[in-house]
């Protein structure tokens, strides 16, 4: 039986779905439930990770310190994980604090073509003895060859596994196979996949990733995450059990945890809305959805036009300020027509 490592970012990616307004109480409730289910890694924090609370990507309700300390108190079976994007998170101000609080797993992320920026953060976390992974976001945007080159950099920096993110929910299964196969045949360390559900393929793509050699998967309760959400964790566990993979997660208890999550932390259960389908097709980061929706309403522009224009510009997370530029360009174009 093959062991699959499951990481659960319900309390991190899910924070995107509520504009980073998860409270300490909600974190405590879900951590307790996930801990009972023996979820291997529970990821906690602002949607864009440690140190990201800002006007640009959204002010979080709680500080990193409060979120992590609360999670730490409620996790004993599960490891406490964080998502770290260098630029948002500094080593001295943020990473050191998180390590002092007692995080177990540090996932250092960059845009898929910019692994260079992760060197210092990965090295620092390894020096402190932490379990460290490299994460390549928006991985649909580059070729398998480039993805391998960037992943190999992270491996050299000291990453213990590489996770590629389908941040836009844009992958089709054949692309998952191509990229995961390229990574597993080139790297010496385990490979993982983080799915989004914009095209309704999150579970299918996750399983495709396993069949191509991945051994790490991300999933969230009820799929709670940015845009159309992630691979639905309880479904993922059920499917993995049926396929004969081992996750060490208690199935009944993860079903209970997802019920609790639905009741206690979700304003809305993620569904694949029309704009999510469009953003998936356009290959735009799911975390943009709130701002696109707000600006579309404010300027009376069709969201779908915004997504396709953003896709053409190949925008990435952190470039939220381009959304307004795109809106202005659409207005200008409409005026001329």
């Amino acid at each position: 039986m093959i062991d699959i490592l499951i990481s659960d970012p319900t309390l991190r990616d899910g924070n995107h779905a509520v504009s980073h307004q998860l409270s300490a109480k909600q974190v405590a409730i879900y951590c307790e439930a996930a801990n009972k289910a023996k979820v291997p890694i529970v990821e906690v924090g602002h949607g864009n990770g440690l140190g990201a609370s800002s006007l640009q990507v959204g002010i979080a309700l709680e500080s990193d310190k409060v979120l992590l300390e609360t999670a730490r108190k409620n996790l004993s079976n599960s490891k406490l994980g964080i998502h770290v994007i260098p630029g948002f998170a500094t080593i001295k101000r943020d990473l050191q604090l998180a390590i002092d609080i007692g995080v177990d797993v540090i996932r250092v992320a960059s845009h898929c073509s910019e692994a260079d920026i992760t060197q210092r953060h990965i090295s620092y976390a390894r020096e402190k003895g932490k379990e460290v992974y490299g994460v390549l976001m928006m991985s649909h945007m580059v070729s398998a060859t480039l993805l391998v080159e960037e992943a190999k950099k992270m491996e050299l920096y000291g990453a213990e596994g590489i996770i590629i993110m389908d941040s836009a929910g844009a992958y089709l299964p054949n692309s998952v196979t191509e990229k995961i196969s390229a990574l597993t045949s080139s790297l010496n360390i385990p490979v993982g996949f983080h799915a989004h559900n914009n095209l309704g393929l999150a579970i299918a793509n996750s399983i495709t990733a396993l069949e191509a050699g991945a051994t790490i998967l991300d999933g969230t309760a009820r799929g709670f995450g940015a845009g159309a959400g992630n691979a639905q964790l309880e479904v993922l566990v059920a499917v993995l059990n049926k396929l004969g993979y081992n996750t060490n997660i208690d199935f009944y208890k993860i079903l209970d945890a997802s019920e609790i999550a639905e009741l206690e932390i979700m304003q809305n259960i993620p569904v694949i809305k029309s704009e999510s389908i469009v953003s998936g097709l356009a290959g735009v980061f799911s975390g943009f959805s709130k701002q696109v929706k707000r600006l579309a309403k404010e300027f009376n522009v069709d969201q779908r036009d915004i997504y396709f224009a953003l896709g053409e510009k190949k925008v990435v997370a952190g470039q939220e300020d381009i959304i307004i530029e795109v809106v202005m360009e659409i207005l200008k174009k409409d005026k001329h027509e």
């Binding site: 090295s123 390894r126 020096e127 003895g129 379990e131 050299l156 213990e160 010496n188 360390i189």
Partner: peptide
């Protein structure tokens, strides 16, 4: 010992009280 080579990582992890993680074959 901060170099990412196997022997350095093993010694460092043992010195700081952790466990040894072999990455790769």
């Amino acid at each position: 010992l901060d170099k990412p080579w196997a022997v350095n990582s093993f010694i460092r992890e043992a010195l700081i009280g952790g466990n040894i993680r072999i990455l790769g074959n």
